[in-house]
Simulated scan of single mutants.
Amino acid sequence: MAELQTLEINIVAALKEFVDTGRPSSKIISDLSSVIKITSELPLGNLKYWERFIRDEYDNALASGYSNKWKFWESNTPRVTLLDLCSWDGFRREKALRAIGEKVPNRFFLALVIRRLNDWVPQVRQAAQDILSTVLVNSEPSYVADAIFFTLSHWSSWKRIDDANRNTLLNTLSNREITNHLKMKLLYSSSGPLVLVMSEIGRTCFLDSSLEVIAVKAIQPSLRAKAYRSLFEGKSSWFAGREWEWTDRRYGEGRRKALVATRILTIKIQRLPTLLLAANDRSSLVRRVAAEMLIKELDNLSDNESLSLAKKFSNDPSIAVAERGNFALKKLAGGTLF
């Protein structure tokens, strides 16, 4: 809480400084350096909050600033800057995008540019589309990686972004430096929607070669489980939207069913060594995936290998894993499964 308040105070001070130096009476050339510096520290996870906060405080700073009411021939309209990416005014948002040039100064403003792809004003979306490729290529790769990481965890709820823009963002991952940055975030982040992000990245092949490392070394257990499942199944999967499914047409009853898209991986694994690694993972989530895969692979493993793993799983402290181990034992013994 204290950190949040400190950030808010610093943002207000930076905005006031920028507005003060932009007044006609000021002898100092106004610049955004102080605003850029403080926004570089903002967490993207709260992007919507910070966008609203900056918009409100910038408006307050402008409202309390100098007015040329006695010099009616001078305009009181502030010039367009990056801060107008947060503006209520769609015209100013569009102008701010058109004025960006080739790159943005930090990940916060880059995330705002990408967010404008879902803007409710068509002209603003078009402006964001027009500069997107150029900005992604010329901005700092770490900024691009952080902004894309944030975007991938949210864009399933964006209704106005089109497939072409999704592909433009995903194709940026062909840059090895950006992909490595995303890989490090997946490996060493302990919380957050990492499984969702990796699923979205799985639309492309750029992270296929890193799946084995993620399965073994990622901190988050659910992410390791997802990586192992993809490796065993030989495909990646992601949420592709929803469609209506009738459950009873006579009474007009139905539900929206989730659609899952898949892509075949570009790599192959050694199944037994990978299965052994998953079976000895510290998380029951991963061991459960391994036990499920053992059941599917019983016919492809030797009797000794299958029996050894089945016994191991049957003695697992996790009930879900032990149940699958016992199922595998019964299937190996040719006993009744139900």
Rank of each mutant, 00 (worst) to 15 (best):
I36P: 00
N180D: 12
T21I: 01
P141Y: 14
Q129V: 03
K331T: 09
K296S: 07
N118Y: 15
A279H: 10
L187R: 10
V216N: 10
L110Q: 12
V289K: 05
V195N: 01
L194P: 00
R116G: 04
V195T: 13
E292R: 15
K330C: 06
F72M: 07
L170S: 00
T21N: 12
D84C: 12
G45Q: 14
G335L: 12
R224L: 04
R255H: 14
G65D: 07
S236G: 08
S190C: 01
F72C: 08
N171P: 00
V289D: 01
W120V: 10
S230C: 12
N165C: 09
S139E: 04
V216F: 14
S308F: 06
A145F: 10
S230V: 03
D20H: 05
D56F: 13
C86E: 04
E305Y: 01
R229Q: 05
I267C: 03
I214L: 12
H154P: 00
D248G: 06
K183L: 09
R176S: 03
S67I: 06
W70R: 14
G241P: 10
P193Y: 00
L194A: 05
K16D: 04
D163W: 07
G241L: 07
G45H: 15
R288P: 00
E8S: 08
V216C: 09
N46Q: 08
G252R: 15
L182T: 00
L97A: 07
R256F: 15
S174L: 10
S306M: 11
K103G: 05
Y188D: 01
W158L: 01
V12S: 05
E253S: 10
Q270L: 11
T77P: 00
G335D: 03
L223A: 11
S318P: 11
E17H: 14
W88V: 04
F72T: 11
L337T: 06
I201D: 01
D163N: 13
G334V: 09
T179W: 00
S139L: 09
K37N: 03
R116V: 03
S209E: 05
T151W: 15
E102F: 09
G334F: 13
E212D: 07
V137G: 02
L152V: 08
N300S: 12
N118A: 07
Q123F: 07
G335T: 04
A333F: 11
S75V: 09
S133L: 01
K331Q: 14
A218W: 03
Q123L: 13
L132A: 09
L85T: 12
K27G: 04
A96W: 00
A322R: 14
D56A: 11
R324D: 02
T274D: 02
N171Y: 12
G101D: 09
E41S: 15
L285E: 11
E94K: 15
L231M: 05
G101I: 06
